[in-house]
Simulated scan of single mutants.
Amino acid sequence: MKKHVVLYKQLSPALMERLQAHAEATFIDDPKRDDFARLRAALPDAQGLLGASIKLDATLLDLAPQLEAIATVSVGVDNYDIEDLDRRGIALCNTPDVLTETTADTGFALIMATARRVVELANMVRSGDWKQNIGAAHFGSDVHGKTLGIIGMGRIGEALAQRGHFGFGMPVLYHSHSAKPAVEARFNAGYRSLEALLREADFVCLTVPLTAETEGLIGKEQLALMRPQSILINIARGKVVDEQALIEALQSGRIRGAGLDVFEREPLATDSPLLRLKNVVATPHMGSATHETREAMARCAVDNLISVLKGERPTNLVNPKGWEAQR
Rank of each mutant, 00 (worst) to 15 (best):
Q229V: 10
Y191F: 13
L43A: 09
A301V: 07
L309G: 05
Y191H: 13
D242H: 02
R192T: 08
I90Y: 00
A159N: 05
M297F: 07
A69L: 01
E295Q: 06
A46V: 03
I151H: 04
M112V: 15
M170E: 06
G259H: 06
H291M: 12
L15V: 07
D142L: 15
V73P: 00
D86T: 08
S307M: 10
D57F: 06
D86L: 01
T315F: 02
D129Q: 11
K3S: 12
I247Y: 03
L246R: 01
N319S: 07
I235N: 02
L217F: 09
V208E: 09
L49Y: 00
T103W: 01
R117N: 13
K3L: 13
L60Y: 06
T207V: 08
T214A: 01
R294E: 13
Y80E: 10
Y174L: 12
L11E: 05
P44D: 04
C300W: 03
G51N: 09
R88T: 07
I54L: 13
A122I: 14
T293V: 11
A64M: 02
P267T: 09
I233M: 06
D81Q: 06
V308I: 03
E312D: 15
D35K: 15
A269G: 15
A245Q: 00
L268F: 15
V125E: 07
R276C: 13
N94G: 07
K239A: 14
I90N: 00
E213L: 12
S53M: 11
L198F: 01
E17G: 11
N279Q: 14
I28V: 11
E295L: 05
H177W: 12
K2N: 13
N79T: 10
I218F: 03
R199N: 06
G164A: 09
A201P: 00
H22A: 15
G135S: 03
G107A: 09
L56D: 07
D202H: 04
T95K: 03
L110T: 06
R276A: 14
R126W: 09
A212D: 08
R294Q: 15
K278E: 13
R254Q: 14
S53F: 12
G107L: 06
L197A: 01
L275W: 08
A137Q: 14
Q229A: 13
R199P: 00
T106C: 12
V208H: 04
G167N: 08
L39R: 07
K239L: 14
T100L: 00
E215M: 10
N316G: 09
G219Y: 01
P209Q: 08
G135E: 02
I233S: 02
D62E: 15
A21C: 10
D86K: 04
M1Q: 14
F166S: 12
T315N: 03
M286Y: 08
P267L: 11
L160G: 10
M112K: 15
F203D: 02
I235T: 09
R327Y: 12
S252V: 06
R265F: 15
Y8F: 14
D35G: 14
G157W: 03
S307Y: 03
A69M: 04
A113L: 10
D62C: 13
T147C: 10
H4G: 06
W323R: 05
V5K: 04
L206E: 05
P31L: 08
E195N: 12
I231G: 04
L67V: 07
R18M: 11
M226F: 05
T207E: 01
R299K: 13
N316W: 04
G89R: 02
A25P: 07
G167L: 02
F166I: 13
G89N: 02
Q162K: 15
T315P: 00
S53D: 11
R299M: 04
V75I: 15
